[in-house]
Design a protein around this nucleic acid. Structure first.
Length: 673
DNA sequence: GCGGATCAC
DNA sequence: GATGGTGATCCGC
């Protein structure tokens, strides 16, 4: 069998660069004439020995282990097993086949080297030059001229320089890209008001209706639409037309740049199309999946998914197997999906690696502030806070905590985040990030405003989201306001909002290209977390361990709470606000005068931490008032594919036969692999 | 619910 | 000298 069909001597030998699988293994348009071996060697030489490189090696080793594991699994399959899974697979394939829908016509558009093209449009002196949009650390988009040298998106700039000594760098200008993106969307809108924008430079359009109403073909729509885009933006794009989105996306890449490819709505055409299509072309199959499928089952084309269907069902989860089989059948995405609401919101920054805890806590405070801004801009609160860390040697860790109530204030976020970070110290980091999930739209709050806890509690106690009584609990944030309990939002309310059509889900890629993060002179105060703001922090703090669970109120506390407790808590909260930074003292030797947090005299260390927190808080406040932070936090979207240096060039009608024959295309792909 | 990983852009 | 940021999802525990 073709198990172990991968490249046998990949482990190294006298050409170690061949086994260094970079993140950009997917062949991109504009890279055809490139001496891949040479480029690969340069990348290898420049990376070798770095922390980054070592981490990549570590990850590769893990992938290898996975592959070995799957091979071993494979080897244990008996004939009986195989025939069993063959039946399973055949049944599944029949089901999938029955779902085939050839009645829709989808069009995928992709701007050609979007950022580079925009920059060239704005500054014609760049025309014809090898251009990289990005920084020495990271290239977002490379112009066509640069691609000839092997320079491409996701490559660090310094490697780009080595590959292409004359490489010109331009800082990303996010506003520009957004502007041009909006122009393209105005065009999309005319062809499909429900178009799906997947990034600034890509979108899916269901053109079925346009074709029917105007009695024209998908090809004609594509030609017209691309001409309109060019007319209205001065930029070129490529398009793919097919019966579903999965295939349309692949098609838009075939005659890139400034081209289009149309696959007819015909089952045989689709099956022929996928028969030689490399799996890596499919969205969702990345570097690792490709390696696994190839090295475990010898699969490299979509059609081979069907030949190995039994093994796919035996080795992978049902979801994965279904996906793989769909790929083999050329199925995927014929209905316009409901507009998805965001599930998380996050913020992360890379910086010069440091183990200085005061620096790290500063950065954490900045992140908390940024996250808060973003949350509040969107009117969101969240329940789960995740701290992301990347160590100086590129190891990534995440640590999460789920709070009882929804939070979005900087203070609340910082308290939980600090706790999470403290538990990991000491360590040297090059990145930190904060993510909020389990979101809740504040606008969905049906209740009026403050002091609604009990009301909500009673009203919601019968609704189906409120399965777990222990969750129904309000807590207090630093400003003494209620944190809405989970039960505020009913299932219905969740579903109500949106129904929007503008499809402006900008999940574009941004990145910081200037790492000068403002670092105030530091004291280590912020590093002392406290849980004063928790509704019942005494017990948590008394446990005093740096355990994450501590942040979440322990079950024994929560489970014991009944209506009485809620009443008590609420009234307690009513007296617990007021805030006078810098003048904190312990009322009755017991209660914090600022936030009402109760801490008995025995807990001196905790008290010190608590006092420090308020001090830090007030100092932080001063800082934010008088410092304009020079965060050149420009956000940079991602790449598209290739650019045309002459955007004014007349679009060629697809009728003029600009298409590369399908076989030639795949031959090209295979060469690129 | 958490944490690691993968993927897209 | 130097390898990003945002968001989603899946899987195993």
């Amino acid at each position: 069998m073709s198990a172990a069909a991968g490249t046998p001597a990949e482990g190294g030998g006298d050409r170690p660069w061949q086994s260094y699988h970079t993140a950009y293994t997917n062949a991109k348009a504009g890279m055809e004439g490139v001496d891949k071996e040479k480029v690969q060697k340069v990348i290898y030489e420049m990376s070798k020995g770095s922390k980054y490189f070592e981490n990549e090696q570590r990850k590769e080793a893990l992938t290898k282990q996975k592959i070995e594991y799957l091979r071993a699994q494979c080897a244990t399959l008996t004939d009986n097993d195989i025939s069993h899974f063959q039946k399973v697979a055949e049944k599944k394939m029949l089901e999938l086949e029955a779902s085939r829908d050839l009645s829709k016509i989808w069009l995928h558009t992709d701007m050609d080297a979007f950022y580079a093209a925009v920059e060239t449009l704005e500054d014609p002196s760049l025309k014809g030059k090898p251009l990289a949009v990005g920084s020495m650390s990271m290239i977002a988009t490379a112009s066509y001229e640069a691609r000839k040298f092997g320079v491409r998106a996701a490559m660090p700039g310094f490697i780009g320089c080595k590959l292409c000594p004359g490489l010109v760098f331009v800082r990303p200008n996010f506003e520009r890209y957004t502007h041009y993106s909006e122009l393209t969307r105005k065009v999309f809108q005319r062809y499909d008001p429900n178009f799906i924008a997947t990034s600034l430079d890509e979108a899916y359009l269901n053109i079925t209706n346009v074709c029917i109403e105007r009695g024209i073909t998908g090809e004609e729509v594509a030609t017209e639409l691309r001409a309109a885009i060019h007319q209205e933006t001065g930029l070129t794009c490529s398009a793919g037309v097919a019966p579903n989105r999965m295939i349309a996306k692949v098609c838009s890449d075939i005659n890139k740049p400034n081209g289009q490819f149309i696959l007819p709505n015909d089952r045989e055409a689709v099956l022929t199309f996928v028969s030689t299509l490399p799996i890596r072309k499919i969205g969702g199959i990345g570097k690792v999946t490709e390696q696994m499928l190839r090295q475990v089952l010898g699969i490299s084309t979509c059609q081979e998914m069907l030949q190995k269907a039994a093994f796919l069902c035996a080795l992978f989860s049902e979801g994965s197997a279904d996906f793989f089989l769909s790929v083999g059948l050329g199925l995927g995405g014929t209905e316009t999906p409901e507009q998805r609401q965001r599930k998380s919101i996050s913020c992360e920054r890379t910086f010069t690696a440091t183990s200085d805890s005061s620096l790290l806590f500063d950065k954490l405070a900045n992140l908390a502030e940024n996250l808060t801004d973003d949350l509040q801009k969107e009117g969101l609160k969240g329940k789960t806070l995740t701290l992301k860390l990347k160590t100086a040697d590129f190891e990534v860790r995440t640590r999460a905590v789920t709070t009882r109530g929804y939070i979005n204030s900087k203070e609340d976020i910082l308290i939980y985040a600090t706790k999470l970070l403290k538990a990991e110290m000491p360590l040297s980091l090059r990145l930190m990030g904060l993510r909020m999930s389990q979101l809740h739209d504040e606008k969905d709050d049906s209740s009026t405003s403050t002091q609604k806890t009990l009301d909500i509690f009673f009203r919601s106690s019968g609704n189906d989201l409120n399965v777990n009584g222990a969750n129904v609990q309000s807590s207090t944030n630093t400003s003494g306001q209620d944190i809405s309990p989970i039960s505020v939002t009913t299932k219905d309310e969740y579903l109500v909002h949106d129904a929007g059509t503008s499809a402006s889900t900008d999940q574009q890629d941004f990145f910081v290209h200037d790492e000068s993060i403002f670092i105030p002179e530091q004291r280590n105060l912020v590093s002392y977390s406290n849980e004063a703001v928790l509704s019942n922090p005494v017990i948590d703090d008394a446990l005093g361990e740096a355990k994450l669970d501590d942040v979440t109120p322990s079950a024994k506390v929560m489970n014991a709470e009944k209506f009485d407790d809620v009443c008590q808590l609420t009234s307690h909260e009513a007296t617990a606000s007021s805030s006078k930074p810098g003048q904190q003292l312990w009322i009755d030797d017991y209660v914090c005068s600022i936030c009402g947090f109760e801490l008995p005299p025995g807990f001196e260390e905790e008290r010190q931490e608590h006092s420090d927190f308020h001090l830090a808080e007030s100092l932080q406040h001063e800082e934010t008032v008088d410092s304009k932070r020079p965060i050149s936090n420009e956000r940079l979207a991602e790449r598209s594919c290739s650019t045309t240096p002459t955007p004014k060039k007349k679009l060629k009608s697809s009728k003029e036969g600009k298409h590369i024959p399908i076989d030639a295309f795949f031959a090209k792909c295979n060469k690129n692999l």
